[in-house]
Design a protein around this nucleic acid. Structure first.
Lengths: 251, 251
DNA sequence: CGGGGGATTGACGTAGCTCAACCCGAGTGG
DNA sequence: CCACTCGGGTTGAGCTACGTCAATCCCCCG
């Protein structure tokens, strides 16, 4: 039985950093969007991007506001969610370095469908939708890469729809934990630590369940030795059995 | 109280038609993919597409099979769904003329994530994934149009996720009916007739509910004068109140 | 006119929501 | 450095929307 008292998450250095132009170019070149471009092309692109720093909890863009920018996460984690009329939030994605959000369309009169908030401190690169469109037109290879990214997200979204339509909470929760582990997990001895602060409410908003239900299910998982967790941190201790549950086996 | 005995759906002429080359070009030019292209470019594209006819009920592509083709619906309606391990189907989309399905990726070793079946008789245009990729590379404007299409579907998928996460069946069902009406409805006197054969099971698979629940809710809607329906057909009689329900008002 | 598959309705069970009390870890200010 | 507080987490006791099981209905077809 492991120590549940102290959070194993390293407190991330809260530096309101700004990248040097060189770093900015390296980050851009590392994103799936621009990876296929030559260095000189990336240099030409770089000054179209404005970088901004946000603190954990800050709202980056708000659902309903006119969608004028495309954003790329340079560092940190972003929560993308749809706030509903009755105050419930539905998280559609957790974004990390290299992911985009915001407007892909050029139509100026559209609005953001989702709110994006900084889950950790983060550095965001912003372009206007129009400028990004110019980039897409000028570099077809970037357009193709973007297409792959969006198609990938669509595939994920369909998987989530399947889960919400057909599977009970324990299964959705197991899937969500495994997906998070794969995307932002770090091996920590025999466990996989999910390297982000994540509340039960966040998990509830990601799985379409209520906080209490998530808390109960997490307690079940913990009692069964599948996970270890505390206040805003989670580690997976038995990925294999958790995978079984995600596939439909009983707890 | 309207006549519920006979189906108001016109029995569609079941002709295993093949388009002439001229018709094929006109159809391609009418899709969102190629609308921005000049006629001569479309002519050059047209012979990359192979057209195939399917009868209602036929399977066009099967989830799990290697994803080698991209398909565009030329005529008719296609149901796109994920069959789950326990035999339940989750419908992610109903596709009509101009919509695509299948593989957008170039990776040959991927598999289809969804099964596509002909909901009505239909005519499908097929290209290999590789050839379509060449088209995307050659005509950036097509790549951008494709990007818009995929981004649009992603937006829809997120809306569905919101619904499944946060709203009860009656609300999801009302939304689904209105969306169908908008996409494939025809004004029929004061009502909007949904021009496709649609079973309670189909609706259940689209809303993440069970047949019996859908049947009960449809009966409620009918008793309240919101819709009219029978064996595999539906008409909306009070779109305004139905919109209210989709927005959260009680029945 | 008979059969079959979709649709309907009823009776009942239960997963997950609601409401509410309580616990506890971590940051804060004296 | 301690006490206080506050926000996240846990647990319990009902309740209800929805699923399950099963019987019946009835449109459509041969």
């Amino acid at each position: 039985m492991s120590e549940r008292r102290r959070s194993p998450l390293e407190p991330v250095a809260v530096s309101p950093f700004h990248c040097t132009p060189v770093q900015l170019r390296r980050i851009l070149g590392g994103t799936p969007f621009f990876a296929p471009l030559a260095a000189e092309d990336i240099n030409r692109l770089a000054d179209r991007f404005r970088q901004t720093h946000f603190q954990a909890g800050d709202t980056i863009v708000r659902a309903g506001d006119p969608a004028t920018k495309l954003a790329i996460v340079a560092a940190g984690l972003v929560k993308l969610y749809r706030p509903t009329a009755d105050g419930q939030d539905v998280v559609v994605n957790i974004l990390k370095s290299g992911d985009y959000f915001g407007s892909l369309a050029d139509l100026g009169n559209e609005t953001y469908a989702e709110t994006a908030t900084a889950q950790t401190d983060c550095c965001i690169l912003l372009v206007t939708a129009g400028e990004f469109r110019e980039v897409l037109e000028r570099y077809p290879v970037v357009a193709l890469a973007t297409l792959e990214l969006v198609a990938d997200r669509l595939r994920n979204a369909h998987a989530v729809i399947e889960q919400l339509s057909a599977y009970p909470v324990e299964r959705r929760l197991a899937s969500t934990l495994l997906t998070l582990a794969e995307r932002i997990g770090r091996a920590d001895g025999t466990r996989i630590l999910i390297e982000m602060p994540l509340s039960r409410q966040d998990l509830a908003d990601m799985t379409g369940a209520k906080v209490e239900t998530v808390s109960r299910t997490m307690s079940d998982f913990r009692r069964s030795g599948l996970i270890d967790s505390g206040r805003r941190w989670i580690a997976i201790t038995d990925a294999e059995r958790l995978t079984g549950i995600a596939g439909g086996e009983p707890v």
